[in-house]
Amino acid sequence: MTGKNAFPAELLQLQERLHHAHAEHRAYLDGLPWSVEPMTGWVRGERFSHRGDVPDGPGWSDEQKETVDRMWAEIRELSIAVAEHPHWKSVPIDVLVATRMQLKRQARPVEAAEAA
């Protein structure tokens, strides 16, 4: 490790995997019905809706729920691994937050960084 903003390769890889896991989770959720459980929809005038009319929601299948739970578990594990990495013990407390943000920016995939 060299330079003030250099991170251990293992930590960079963990953060990259975390970014990837978040992106996969968001993409998977985008393909699911709007409601986890079956729910009756409504027309715009019945309830507030920024989307206009909302169709009935069939809910998620057990397999979809299990997939979302598995994805969340991976995100939690990776988040903990990044947060508890030994590297953070060497970072002065007064720059810890800024250094963690630098890691997120440095490890962010190019396509995600361009979309932000």
Rank of each mutant, 00 (worst) to 15 (best):
R44N: 12
P92T: 11
W72G: 01
V54W: 00
A27F: 02
A81R: 04
S61N: 02
R51Q: 10
E111K: 03
R26L: 08
H22E: 04
R108Y: 03
W72H: 13
E84D: 15
G57K: 03
V97F: 08
P58A: 08
L103A: 01
E37Q: 13
M101A: 14
T67S: 04
R100L: 06
R108S: 03
P58I: 10
V95Y: 02
H20K: 04
W72L: 14
A115Q: 13
P109R: 12
H25P: 05
T2E: 00
R44C: 11
P86V: 11
I93N: 03
W88N: 09
G52E: 06
H25E: 10
V68G: 05
H87Q: 09
M1S: 14
S49I: 12
E37I: 10
G41T: 12
R76I: 06
E84K: 12
L18T: 06
A21W: 04
L18I: 05
V97Y: 09
V91R: 03
V68A: 14
H19E: 05
L103T: 02
A9D: 11
A98L: 11
R108K: 15
A115V: 12
G31C: 04
K104F: 00
A6R: 08
L14F: 04
L103C: 08
G41R: 11
D94S: 06
W34I: 09
Y28L: 02
K89D: 15
E63S: 13
W72N: 14
R26G: 04
E77L: 11
G52Y: 11
A81D: 01
E46I: 03
E66P: 00
E37C: 05
V36I: 14
M39R: 15
G31V: 02
D30V: 02
Q106A: 13
